[in-house]
Amino acid sequence: MKPKVQDTRLPIYSVSKPSVWKRLRKQASPQLFVIVGLIVLFIFQYLPMFGILMAFKDYSITDGISGIFTSHWVGFKYFIQFFHDYQFKTIVTNTLAISFLKLIFTFPIPIILALMLNEVRISVVKRIVQTTSYFPHFISWVVVAGLASVFLSTDTGLFNDFLMKLGIIHHPIDFLSDPHHFWGLAVGTAMWKETGWWTIIFLAAVSGIDPTLYEAAQIDGAGRLKRIWHITLPAIRGTIVVVLILAIGSLLGGGLVGSNFEQSFLLGNSVNSGRSEILQTYAFQMGLAQGRYSYATAIDLLQSVISVILIFGSNWIAKKTTKTGLF
């Protein structure tokens, strides 16, 4: 016979939860702000999605918006056409290669810079480095492409001149016309432009860490590197994961640093197209230059589908491995 155990738990008084409607009424003012935001989101983000239909229809631009609904269904004709396009392999390879290279190289750099800046004790130096590193974020890609041409040209480029004067190279490097340099050019310029900006996010996360943790670690004899490894990095892990998921979600657009389209469009040319043509520039060219809107929509839709898979996939992996995720 089991001994009778007295229930020591406190009695639970059932409190009926207010209905959703009542809660909404209670939060009327803030909810109205949300509704305005949702309406804007719906009008500008969701409503235009009916254009996706074009990818499955034989659409002619002269039929106007109604033509999207009235034109003939052609199923996956344009997707199949794209799979058979002579540039398909090149374009997909370039898109994936540039995107993954950007992720690999541009994701850790802002974290490292944030950690380094956090260790700088002279605030003037810290501010100068911070300001100069995030300043390029505000320069448009058109200007960056112009600067790249001026600095990297073989005929008149300052960078080549500089390297040659130092005796590092004997012949100018064809940064702009040699296809083999395009991926490096894309990653390098993106890193230069956006590292400082993303450093701010990680610096903000670092500044939220309780300073007593560092003090305690210091008393225990932990050096700088130990403190970074055992305190700073674990404390900002959540931020790192969220930013990483966002970066993977927009991977095909260039991830954290974005700008795949701008770079390929502005720095790409017929000579380096074998390395610079990507899904977005090709869709742009097919749609606007050639007027093949259905075909261009199919190409772009394909990219969107891959992006959705990537964001769900990365979120699932993040949740499994770090117990942190976006949703």
Binding site: S177, D178, V271
Partner: peptide
């Protein structure tokens, strides 16, 4: 002729 000539926009 230069390679860059073919990249001019």
């Amino acid at each position: 002729i230069s390679a860059e000539n073919f990249t001019w926009k």
